[in-house]
């Protein structure tokens, strides 16, 4: 159980340009693969503004230099790298380390 990396799915399960939700312990984590670069990101699935577990179902993209996901409920943008909400800087979501390990995707469980 080195460093708590948890296997979430096969790399092929995550279509580039989309997200998936994984259960990491008790926490819902949204995992995204950026289409152009195949980079991976993971943030909490809970949208603190819409108050529902939906972020994995949001659309990814870029605003300026930041890679973001837009909430499917009310369209606020969350920075995938920092978890910060672009429209409401006082709101943010938790971020998680994520990596591709061979054929699988792993998320690190952080306390």
């Amino acid at each position: 159980m080195s460093d708590n990396w948890i296997t979430v799915c096969n790399d092929s399960d995550l279509t580039p340009g989309t997200g998936l939700c994984a259960l990491i312990g008790e926490e819902q984590v949204a995992v995204f693969k950026i289409k152009k670069t195949s980079e991976l990101f993971a943030v909490s699935n809970y949208d603190p503004i819409g108050e529902a577990n939906v972020l994995a179902r949001g659309m990814t993209g870029s605003i300026g230099d930041a890679l973001v996901v837009a909430s499917p409920l009310y369209k606020q943008h969350f920075n995938l790298a920092t978890g910060e909400c672009l429209e409401k800087p006082d709101v943010s979501v938790k971020t998680y380390p994520v990596r591709k390990n061979g054929d699988v995707i792993e998320v690190q469980s952080v306390a």
Binding site: I34, G58, M59, G61, S62, A70, K75
Partner: peptide, 10 residues
């Protein structure tokens, strides 16, 4: 340019 967004993609 960039990665697109929730305006241009749909």
């Amino acid at each position: 340019k960039g990665h697109g967004c929730d305006i241009c993609k749909p």
